[in-house]
Nucleic acid binder design. Structure first.
Length: 230
DNA sequence: TTTGTCAACGTGTCCA
DNA sequence: TGGACACGTTGACAAA
């Protein structure tokens, strides 16, 4: 439990027939390289010196970014910030604990990661969005499979109806449960429930002439479908 | 060059 | 009314 995809996404979904382990298996292929992004290794935040490594390199790429107001400096954005492995790891960790942050938690995390609170906030927003997207994709896949099996079931039932209709064309011979002689057509009636011809003779149980429907009880297409609870 | 990822932004909505 | 959030989008970047 708590498996994470290479991209760090952790997903759970209450979909019948879908194990939650798909959080790591099912999505691993999504990004093409299931090996985690190497991009993080090439961290723009790392000090160029390459000397003794700061635990959390500054998440602020440009010196003047702090002052940058809305509009992000107008003509062009700053160089793209990539969070370091350690920063991502800690963010993921706290995301696992809580998908939302209180202002205090945000501040503390920002200090810990040497990021601005706004950056932590944005990271959590994006992270929630990615989680939701994956969840939606999962549900979509599940609904597609549902649609497929329901279509198949529908086809099968229609075939069954056709067969039953064909059977009804020829007058059935129903034996009297008492005399074992064929009953006249006038003595026959239609069972309203199962639409089968039965003997209308008093005393004769409606199901007397009913032939067991092949596979009726164990029809794999007639399971009591659990209501899909999303 | 194309495509996928992701940090960051703008905007609308909700709620205390 | 301000803050938090969802959602859609942008743009930088890496890999195919």
């Amino acid at each position: 439990m708590g498996s994470t995809s290479p991209s760090g996404l952790e997903l759970t979904m209450a979909v019948p027939g879908l194990s939650s382990s798909s959080g790591s298996e099912g999505f691993g292929c999504n990004a093409g390289n299931g090996n985690g992004s190497n991009m993080r290794d090439l961290d723009m935040n790392q000090p160029a010196s390459g000397g003794e490594e700061e635990e959390f390199p500054m998440g602020i790429v440009e010196e003047d970014e702090e002052e940058r107001g809305p509009g992000a400096g107008g003509p062009h954005r700053p160089k793209k910030l990539r969070l370091s492995k350690e920063q991502s790891r800690l963010l993921e960790e706290s995301f696992r604990v809580n998908h939302t942050l209180t202002p205090k938690q945000k501040e503390a995390l920002a200090v810990k990661l040497k990021l601005r609170p706004r950056q932590v906030e944005v990271w959590f927003q994006n992270r929630r969005a990615r989680t939701k997207l994956k969840q939606t994709e999962l549900e979509c896949e599940y609904l597609k499979r549902c649609f497929g099996s329901l279509t198949e079931e529908n086809r099968r039932l229609q075939r069954e109806v056709e067969e039953l209709r064909a059977m009804r064309v020829a007058p059935p011979t129903v034996l009297s449960p008492h005399t074992r002689q064929p009953l006249p057509a006038s003595a026959l009636t239609m069972c309203p429930r199962c639409e089968r011809i039965t003997a209308a003779t008093a005393g004769a149980p409606a199901g007397a002439a009913r032939t067991p429907r092949p596979g009726a009880a164990t029809n794999p297409f007639h399971p009591r479908r659990p209501s899909a609870a999303f």
